[in-house]
């Protein structure tokens, strides 16, 4: 009996069931807090036609950027995609579709999707291209735009520590979109730096309760730094 034990032992098992044309929600901000091994597994599986929902699309050769190499992404939903030459190429050639979404709206779309809220009103984007063709409603004299939420076939998440039941803790700003993504996957896979026994994490310190998580895998992380800025001693 597996009970609540969600640990899988291979990346193949972790991403089993991912098929062409599915939607994958990925946690991370830039290269910080990204599920590196799960992204590599998607590349290895050569799954195509994916809709990927993530704040950014990695960089050339690292993070979600590697899924561009074999044109696995059909559509990218993101707030900022400026760090990537291959992205630019495929966008201009029409091979890649992009839905630019304000960062807060993107986080809320994931949060709402995971919370069973099909859409929400926000002031963000009113009067801009983001609101074009969408329902506008006034509350207390101000216009708000109706934004649909997002649910993924898969969500891929990077945690610092996860227990075998899928309870997760994130570290520093590597948290970012990961807790939202975790709630919004039909299958949520957590790649953790460290897997611990149930009871080792303090219950009141858990960021993502295990109920949202279907699979947990021990990860290997390079943790590449995008912009190393330091001050003199």
């Amino acid at each position: 009996m597996a009970g609540f034990n969600k640990v899988v032992n291979s990346y193949g098992e972790a991403m089993a069931g991912l098929e062409d044309n599915m939607t994958v929600i990925a946690g991370g901000f830039g290269l910080c807090g990204i599920p590196e091994g799960l992204i590599k597994e998607i590349k290895n599986k050569a799954t195509r036609g994916l809709t990927v929902v993530s704040n950014n699309c990695g960089v050339d050769g690292f993070g979600l950027g590697i899924l561009l190499e074999d044109k696995q992404i059909h559509k990218m939903v993101a707030s900022y995609v400026g760090e990537n030459a291959l992205f630019e190429q495929q966008l201009l050639s029409g091979e890649l579709e992009v839905e630019l979404t304000p960062q807060g709206t993107l986080a809320e779309k994931m949060r709402a999707g995971g919370a069973g809220i099909p859409a929400f009103y926000t002031a963000t984007g009113v009067g801009t291209v983001v609101a074009e063709g969408k329902d506008i409603k006034q509350f207390a004299g101000r216009d708000y735009v109706l934004e649909p939420s997002i649910v993924g076939d898969f969500a891929i998440v990077k945690a610092w520590k996860a227990d075998r039941y899928g309870n997760c803790i994130y570290r520093h700003t590597a948290m970012n979109f990961n807790p939202m993504a975790a709630t919004a996957g039909k299958i949520t896979v957590v790649e953790a730096e460290e897997i611990v026994e149930p009871g080792e994490l303090e219950p009141s310190q858990i960021h993502t309760p295990g109920i949202y998580v279907q699979r947990v895998i021990q990860g290997q992380f390079e943790k590449r730094i995008e912009k190393r800025t330091v001050r003199g001693a």
Partner: peptide, 8 residues
């Protein structure tokens, strides 16, 4: 490149 958080 995208609006990032500016619209929010």
């Amino acid at each position: 490149k995208g609006m990032g958080g500016a619209m929010d």
